[in-house]
Structure formats: structure tokens, C-alpha cells
């Protein structure tokens, strides 16, 4: 973390000084595309087929809407996955996400209550997992989706050990 708030580089809250960000796996985009786009695309294609079968029907409208939503989700998933990054600092974990609505969270290791590693079926298909750091606050939402399983395990162990060594009360 920067100790020099006067530094002009620190003007950007989402680009703190001297922080080396680690990106999440690009497979996160694929996983989100599968879970987000596929249902929308199937619906859209279904309506498109219906529109072809029944001529002069109103089915083109929902077909177009669903396909547009699918395309938008496709694009958004890629963008969001690329924006998600984390950095392990000396004393805290930084998580950054979003492009349109940007967000950065600084979670001290000493505040960590427990770590969750979660992988759903689609996640497992793409070999990614989600690591979430929980503090006593419900608001500190420090989740890192899209980590390779071995990286997730490493991060989990590392966070747990750092939490141990820097344990603080409430």
C-alpha cells in the first residue's frame, strides 16, 4: 500500500502505487459465458425457430431481444473477467473489479475470520474456483472468482497462515 498519499500516482484509487496485480484466469469469462449466455441464446434460438415455423408471427421480437441479451452478456463477461484482479500485500489483500462500476476492497489479513473456496459444476468444468475472504463485517465482500484450483488452494493456505500470524481481536 502506498505510504505517499501526496504522490500524484496515488490519485487513482484503483491503481495504488507499487501494487502488482494478479489477473484471474481468462477461463472465468468462458465459465460466465456458458452459465449466462447459453440459457439466453437457447431461448432466443427457440423463438427464432418458432418465428421461422410460424410466418408473420411476433416471435422475432423476443428472439431478437434474447439474442441481443446473450451477445451483451458474452461481451460483459469478457470485460468483467478482465477487470477482476487481486494483489497480496504485506498486510492486506486487495481485490479490484468492475470497469463501469469500479470497486476496490482492502482487507487486512488480521481481520480475516474464515476463507471459503467454492467451485460450482460449471466452474469445475472450466477448472476454476472462487476464493472468498470473510471478515466480521458483512460489507467487506472480498471475493476472487476465476482462480485455477491449485492457485485457489495456495491462496487459501496462504491467507489462513497470514491470518494466523496477524490475528487480531474484533
Amino acid at each position: 500500500m502506498s505510504e505517499h498519499p501526496g504522490n500524484p500516482r496515488a490519485a487513482e484509487p484503483f491503481e495504488p502505487d507499487g501494487v502488482r496485480w494478479s489477473a484471474v484466469s481468462p477461463r472465468l469469462a468462458s465459465a460466465r459465458r456458458v452459465s449466462g449466455c447459453v440459457p439466453l441464446a437457447v431461448l432466443g434460438l427457440g423463438f427464432a425457430v418458432a418465428a421461422l415455423v410460424v410466418p408473420w408471427s411476433q416471435f422475432w421480437l423476443p428472439a431478437g431481444l434474447f439474442l441481443a441479451a446473450a451477445a451483451w452478456t458474452w461481451w460483459l463477461a469478457g470485460r468483467q473477467a478482465a477487470a477482476w484482479a487481486y494483489a497480496e500485500q504485506e498486510d492486506d489483500l486487495l481485490v479490484r473489479s468492475g470497469i463501469m462500476f469500479r470497486r476496490i476492497v482492502v482487507v487486512p489479513y488480521g481481520r480475516m475470520q474464515f476463507v471459503d473456496v467454492h467451485a460450482g459444476p460449471v466452474d469445475r468444468l472450466f477448472r476454476i474456483a472462487r476464493v472468498q475472504l470473510h471478515t466480521a463485517s458483512a460489507a467487506s465482500d472480498a471475493a476472487i472468482p476465476g482462480l485455477a484450483p491449485e492457485e485457489a488452494a495456495r491462496l487459501r493456505d496462504r491467507l489462513s497462515s497470514r491470518g494466523q500470524s496477524r490475528l487480531a481481536g474484533l
Binding site: P13, F14, M100, F101, R102, R103, I104, V105, V106, V107, P108, R111, T135, A136, S137, A138, A139, S140, A142, L170
Partner: peptide
């Protein structure tokens, strides 16, 4: 507990950001 900064599109255009301290529920 932890700290956070958020910024929406309008805030970015105006050079603003929202700072939050995360406390227990």
C-alpha cells in the same frame, strides 16, 4: 474491518469516488 472505494460512471466523469469503512453488521 476493511476498506473500500467505489466509483460509478458519472462519478468517474466528475472525478469523484465513494469511500466506505466496513464495520460489523
Amino acid at each position: 474491518q476493511s476498506l473500500g472505494v467505489r466509483q460509478g460512471p458519472v462519478q468517474r466523469r466528475l472525478g469523484l469516488a465513494t469511500f466506505a469503512v466496513h464495520s460489523t453488521p
